[in-house]
């Protein structure tokens, strides 16, 4: 087994043994159960017309998935922030790096292990939430697989950034910076929407630029698009044409050029992490 895979397995085992997986599973199951109750109430409400129910269920699902995207982001940052720095400080990495192991094996192994945890979480949470909503309300998003993939990509972006920060900053600092940047990127997206609504070019530019600097919000918008039924997409297109914008409605899927940029961003941050760790004195 290659050293990268040995470290990846070790990282996975750590996530399971330290009850991270169990804690995430417990909280997620609780939230999904709560959402099942909520969607049941919403779908069978006598005060809403069927048209209103059809419009509100997808919107409510987007809000719930936003909450799960926050859990994904928080988990990615919390798991990756101590991955290098805490193990350097405690001396765990001294015994490992004295072995015939390259530092890049360690970093890539950790990334792989944590990405596997995120992938499993995104797959589980998307299928559970979408399945529950379909069961209680009959609404099935147009492409659940794409939703899960965008959610995972968003988590991977933050995971890779937190891992880069972890090669230099203490765990708490890199965790706080990662989450703060995630929040700032989302807020910049909302600011961009406000800029579009009120036709303030500078604010719109802030939203656009932030999606390139940290692509978490851009990828979250991809997830929104694949959660929307055609009626919501049409409304979002009309709102966008009319100058109004809603941070929880997206008129189009991310362009392939944007996805290409995300791939470049990912490679650049990962390379920076590898170089930073390679140069770190232990």
């Amino acid at each position: 087994m290659s050293p990268t895979l040995v470290i990846a397995r070790l990282t996975l085992r750590e996530a399971v043994r330290r009850r991270l997986v169990a804690a995430c599973a417990a909280i997620t199951l609780g939230l999904v159960a709560l959402s099942a109750w909520g969607f049941d109430r919403l779908s069978h409400s006598r005060s809403l017309t069927s048209g209103e129910v059809h419009a509100s269920v997808p919107q409510a699902l987007i809000m719930f998935m936003f909450m799960f995207s926050f859990v994904v982001a928080l988990s990615a940052s919390a798991m990756a922030s101590p991955a290098i720095s805490a193990e350097v400080d405690s001396g765990v990495l001294l015994t490992i790096l004295a072995r015939p192991v390259r530092r890049r094996d360690v970093l890539l192994g950790k990334w792989l292990g944590l990405a596997a945890v995120l992938a499993a979480y995104c797959a589980a949470v998307t299928s559970l939430e979408v399945g529950v909503v379909d069961w209680v309300s009959g609404f099935l998003p147009p492409d659940s697989l794409a939703v899960g993939c965008y959610l995972f990509a968003e988590g991977v972006v933050l995971l890779t950034l937190a891992l880069l920060l972890s090669t230099r900053l203490p765990p708490i600092a890199s965790g706080v910076v990662g989450i703060a940047l995630f929040g700032a990127a989302w807020l910049a997206g909302v600011v961009g929407s406000l800029g579009a609504t009120f036709k303030i070019g500078t604010l719109r530019t802030v939203g656009e630029v932030s999606r390139y600097v940290l692509p978490t919000d851009g990828l979250w918008r991809g997830a929104i698009y694949y959660l929307e039924p055609q009626s919501l997409i049409s409304r979002a297109v009309d709102e966008a044409a009319g100058g109004a914008a809603n941070p929880f409605a997206v008129p189009a899927a991310p362009a392939w050029t944007y996805l290409l940029w995300v791939a470049v961003w990912f490679l650049a941050v990962m390379t920076a992490g590898l170089v930073s760790f390679e140069r770190r004195e232990l």
Partner: peptide, 13 residues
């Protein structure tokens, strides 16, 4: 083979 002065192993192993 190397035994460092200050080190720790993974407490969960």
């Amino acid at each position: 083979g190397y035994l460092p002065e200050l080190f720790r192993f993974q407490s969960w192993l």
